[in-house]
Simulated assay, not measured.
Amino acid sequence: MSFPYGKLHPKFLEKIVFKHLGFKRSDVILGPSKGEDAALIRIGEELIAASCDPISGSIKNVGWLAVNVSANDVATRGVKPSWFLSCILLPKNSKLNVLKMICKQMDLASKKLEIAIIGGHTEVSLGLNHPIVVGFCAGRVKEGKYVTCSKAKPGGKIILTKGAGIEGTAILAIEREKELIKFLGRKIVEKAKNYINLVSVVKEALTAFDFGGVQAMHDPTEGGVLGGLCELADAANLGIKVYENKILVGKETRAICDLFKIDPLKLISSGSLIIVANPEEAEDIVAKLENSGVKASIIGEMLNDPEERYMMTKEGVKKKISIPETDELWKGLER
């Protein structure tokens, strides 16, 4: 068999990847697990939260996304990201200005988040059509001062920040700019391109965690909001119920998805943050986020039965949801 583009479905992780994890060490508090964004490693009296991500679907903002996406994963633990390493892979005949662009973007993103770039690797590789950057990010935290997706509880209220398909909207607007301007007009496309500045969730993750009442947080990347919800539910072995009319989809996202005939709820959504909160504190967390300038809304709740995972559509139909086989971004980029 051959795999589709993008992140592998969890069933292949369980079947192959998770069966080959090297030496088992007692200082690994949380290793590779379904639905979890970052590892946790004990170093003395503290822990390190660490994660890595490749940027393979974007060309013009690959450096910016490499920092932000891996930093997001660390922040979902309630941990401030502090250090970043990159592996920059360039295609043959790459120009010097391409490397400069990537490094400047990583520098800008890291400074904005107060992250130090502490090392990495750069090379020209065979078989590439465009640059790929793999980012590794880490942060330090005290014992017990973090959250994991597995700690979500039945009845926990699901909060979503900003809306669906943020990263995908930006990538499609930037990589398919000329085509989109032709059909949608320059004004919508320029606004959609600016979504690239919304891809960080570090601010809202730390704001929510510091406020209190957070059970779990997850960064819905490939597979979009619906995929992210199912990943979180997998980690906690719970069900989910969400309401389609509660999930914000930006005007620009909707326009691009309608044009490419793709589902915004299954479009890569870095920039969105899924928070599971104690029911009695969920509204207060939303208010805190709104007061800090981050849009947020309660879109559903966690259920006790892991087989119950569904969305109530705008028409009132109960629709079962699952992790998509591939992200809608690839469909848009291939059109």
Rank of each mutant, 00 (worst) to 15 (best):
L113C: 05
A208N: 03
V79T: 12
I88Y: 03
W83A: 11
G44E: 11
H20W: 06
D234R: 12
E36L: 02
A49H: 08
V28D: 06
L126C: 04
S51H: 09
S292M: 10
L65G: 00
K320G: 02
H20G: 06
S51I: 03
W83S: 14
I29G: 06
I181A: 05
F260L: 14
S272C: 01
I256Q: 02
S82D: 07
L85N: 07
M302T: 14
L267R: 01
N93F: 13
V202Q: 00
A75N: 01
K191G: 10
H218S: 14
E222M: 00
K319Q: 14
A38L: 06
R309L: 07
L248C: 11
E175A: 06
P154T: 10
I268F: 00
T76Q: 01
L229R: 08
F183C: 04
V202Y: 00
M217R: 00
K178Q: 13
N245E: 15
K320S: 13
F12M: 09
L267P: 02
E308K: 15
I240K: 06
G185Y: 11
V202F: 00
K203S: 01
D210V: 08
D27A: 06
S292P: 02
C149H: 03
E307D: 12
L96P: 04
G155P: 08
K193D: 01
K153C: 03
E301A: 10
P32Q: 07
I41W: 08
